[in-house]
Design a protein around this nucleic acid. Structure first.
Lengths: 369, 369
DNA sequence: GTGAAAGCGCTAACAG
DNA sequence: CTGTTAGCGCTTTCAC
């Protein structure tokens, strides 16, 4: 009811216990050098008054807030949702709170979020940088607060980083496809493109590289037009979808995250293709529905919770003063083969689309940057 | 590099500009009553020094932190993930930060989280209470901070609440099933049970009530054993799964959230049942995969983002001092009929399970409380 | 062992 | 219009 009732301060406690403020403070902080009897009195008074220290005041003195800032692309994406879960839990277990921000991989949003968190004097920041090269804001942040990267690297930054080996994971996933006889293999992603060869997001770039390497290892020449890139959460684009219907259409797809896989699946269905008979699919991220899906999805399963927990542990260590050299933790991913990947049946698969879709002008295929 | 470089204070700015601290403060707060020339000087100095106010100090004075606490069951659940997304975005748009905590619907975790947030002097709390009756901690929180409920009610608390009409939504979803000729209709949920009739979570209780009402409206007597309740994220339990194989097995299921639906689907498949031919399914929450699934899932779609955005707006209004009577905002849900619900084919469906599963002792069916 | 006093960065009186 | 002062709640010297 009464929104103005001021919570008790340490002075209230000291007065109630009949001791000085500093003694009360010492007791509350559990420091030695206080007579047992005095300690009792103070504890009792604190209990009775329902005292709990004001972290703002504490923070002002110490400069430490026991809060860590978390700046991720999108909590709605199951990958980041699970990471967020692990981060908040781990932080809480260590006495830290978490401030959250989404960026949708927009650099300006990321910069703004980081700035706000610095203002709030967070003790550390965990971030999945949207761009491995645009890192001025992180460089600046680093002057006052430890920064830990998750899922993506930024070598020039020289900070703790927690990732999986995206290159190798993509290589193996692609190999799964080539081993099944596929030669026309497409990649779907919603990462924006930095160059024709590489997206802004480092993990995706590495995955692309891994795919190309595996393709070459199988004697296949990677062709740029098979790397389909969409806008945020809107993949694949019309042009890409249309390609499903073409004569030289891919017989297999690798998607860079579970949401993109969903879009790809829808597009495939719309084009009249069945998975895995007409199109094999393997995707990054073992989303909760991957297994329940029919067909059950073959995936690259990342240890997402460990990723989040590790990042949190690292940033807290730094917050507590650890000053060793930057650490890169690389966790193991696992390729899980389920039902969505199948041996390529027909050597010369023609268009089987019920209603052929006209190929759009190439002008609609802007690189989306 | 240098983790100790103290950020500039307003005193630094005042000195640099050659004015008093309060003048500098006035300028920074954009208050009127400062000569334009002076203002310029201060602004220039602040810019040059890279000054930004210390919210901790501000907070200590004003008692306001521009932070709202968000206490939800589980960000990994797509429903809460999307709500979290909407909450953080809306908060940020209004100049507020968000502190996040997960409870897994454990009352102790909820209490601890609320306490921590009060300590941190959040300006408001958004919570999805695990138990509509155990609300002492919220009652207490209310004395110092506005509280807004999302997804679940707690009438005794008398606070702003943002929900959908769960009763009606469940009624209609069930009606969809009865209209298709189903008479054996089960409910799967992972909410823990308070009484045989009602779970602890208010929204789930209302959904159960809605199901019962719809059943009765169709001339069907609701039987308690068709309301299957699991432990957290582990639904349905073995006993429930086994029932899929029985002679009097249900021909339709309603699930109370998208993750439970997934478990149910898996269990059905394991029992050798096809959806929708052998079993119809309708579930709460239009998860991203609902539509891509085969069969595409019939769902009760909640306006999740609006739920989150509205809760955030309400709590911020309260934080700013609005003191009107408690408001209950009820948003519209939508029943989307897709492919997972079908007319009941065989009037007397016997067990079609490939390998019959023995019905477990009833002792294993403990109410899980 | 314990208390008094200073000060973290900021803002709200209150003078000038 | 602008500067000085006091004090938010807490901890940390530094005396006693």
């Amino acid at each position: 009811m009464n929104g103005t009732r001021r919570p008790p301060t340490i002075i209230d406690v000291a007065d109630a216990a009949g001791v000085g403020r500093s003694t009360a403070s010492r007791v509350m902080k559990g420091q030695a050098g206080v007579k047992a009897a005095t300690r009792e009195k103070v504890l009792e008074a604190a209990e009775r008054l329902g005292y709990s220290p004001n972290p703002l005041a504490q923070g002002m003195l110490s400069g430490r807030t026991h809060t860590i800032g978390v700046v991720l692309a999108d909590v709605e994406n199951p990958f980041f949702a699970q990471a967020t879960r692990a981060i908040t839990d781990t932080a809480r277990d260590n006495g830290y709170d978490v401030i959250l921000a989404n960026t949708d991989d927009r650099p300006e949003a990321e910069q703004a979020a980081v700035r706000l968190m610095l203002d709030k004097r967070v003790d550390g920041i965990i971030v999945s940088p949207a761009n491995s090269l645009q890192i001025d804001h992180l460089q600046r942040a680093l002057r006052t607060t430890p920064v830990v990267l998750i899922d993506r690297k930024a070598p020039a930054l020289g900070v703790d980083t927690v990732v999986i080996d995206n290159y190798t994971a993509a290589f193996r996933a692609t190999q799964l496809l080539t081993n099944l006889g596929h030669t026309r293999i497409a990649v779907t992603s919603n990462a924006r493109r930095a160059t024709p060869e590489a997206p802004f997001i480092s993990s995706v770039t590495e995955r692309f590289d891994g795919v190309r390497a595996a393709l070459r290892a199988a004697g296949i020449t990677p062709t740029p037009e098979l790397f389909w890139i969409g806008g945020w959460n809107s993949v694949p684009q019309p042009a890409a979808i249309a390609r499903f219907a073409e004569g030289d259409r891919p017989t297999a797809v690798l998607s860079t995250d579970s949401l993109v896989a969903l879009s790809t699946l829808s597009a495939a269905r719309r084009a009249g293709l069945r998975v895995p008979d007409d199109l094999s699919l393997v995707t990054f991220d073992n989303a909760p529905w991957s297994e329940a899906f029919s067909p059950a999805l073959s995936v690259v399963s990342q240890p997402v919770s460990e990723l989040g927990a590790t990042a949190t542990r690292l940033v807290i260590e730094r917050a507590k003063g650890y000053a060793g050299p930057p650490r890169e933790v690389q966790l193991q991913s696992e390729l899980i083969e389920r039902e969505s990947t199948q041996r390529r049946e027909k050597p010369s698969a023609g268009p089987i689309c019920r209603q052929p879709v006209a190929r759009p002008k190439s002008s609609t295929e802007r690189p989306d940057r």
